[in-house]
Simulated scan of single mutants.
Amino acid sequence: MMEVPIRCTGTAVVLLKEVENQYRVLLVKRAKAVLKDVWCYIGGAIEEGETATEAAYREVKEETGISDISLYSANTFDKIYSIEGNYIYIAPVFVGFVASDQDVTLNEEHSEYRWLSFQEAVDTVSLPGNDEVLSFIEKHFVKQEAPRYLKVGD
């Protein structure tokens, strides 16, 4: 019997910022060859010696320039089946509440960014499954208080 391996080599972060008493979701448009022109939230590889949490902080800083965030484990995952590699890719998703004075400075990986309402973000994300992650986060981190036991640090 042949098994399809599961690989967890990356992390994802949904950034939220309160604008006029409503949480907005940061989406970025990919500029690189892989997933070019795809709208998504922040994500990237876990580097040698890093934890998923450390990778989440680093990816947010690299891709957006944002360093002041309150990070939570979303307790959900991005999941993708690689047709070419015949493996299942899974990545822990984090929620980052961004301080209102933080501005976005994109690196070369992305061409555009937008702060969108949850409904706009759900309608905009390109990858199947990202919409479900956003709906899950809205339910558990916005419509109710973020669970303290999922807070990173503190």
Rank of each mutant, 00 (worst) to 15 (best):
K32M: 05
K36D: 00
P92C: 09
V28I: 13
Y72W: 10
S73D: 14
G85S: 14
Q22H: 12
V60E: 01
I90R: 04
G44Q: 06
I66H: 02
S67Q: 10
G49S: 08
I69M: 06
S67V: 09
V93T: 00
I90N: 05
I88F: 10
E50S: 13
Q22W: 10
Q22G: 10
T51G: 05
K36C: 04
V28D: 05
K61W: 05
F77V: 15
N86K: 13
E63Y: 02
A56D: 07
K79E: 14
D78R: 13
Y41Q: 01
A55Q: 01
F94E: 02
V34Q: 06
T64V: 04
I69C: 07
A33S: 06
Q22F: 11
I69G: 02
Y41P: 03
L27V: 12
T64Q: 02
S67G: 12
G43A: 07
V25M: 11
K32T: 10
L35E: 07
S82K: 09
D78M: 14
S67I: 07
E62Y: 03
Y89W: 14
G65L: 04
W39V: 01
K36R: 07
C40M: 10
I88W: 10
K79C: 14
Y23M: 08
Q22R: 11
V38W: 04
A74D: 12
R58A: 00
Q22V: 13
C40N: 08
V60F: 04
A56C: 08
C40W: 05
L27A: 09
G44A: 08
I42P: 04
A33F: 02
L71A: 11
E59F: 03
A91H: 01
W39Y: 01
V28G: 06
T51L: 06
D68F: 02
A52S: 11
D78N: 15
K61C: 04
I46M: 08
Y87L: 12
V60Q: 04
I69T: 06
T64G: 02
V25E: 09
G49Y: 07
I66N: 03
G43V: 02
I80H: 15
E20D: 10
K36P: 04
I80S: 14
N86S: 13
N75H: 15
E62P: 00
D37E: 06
Y81W: 13
R58D: 02
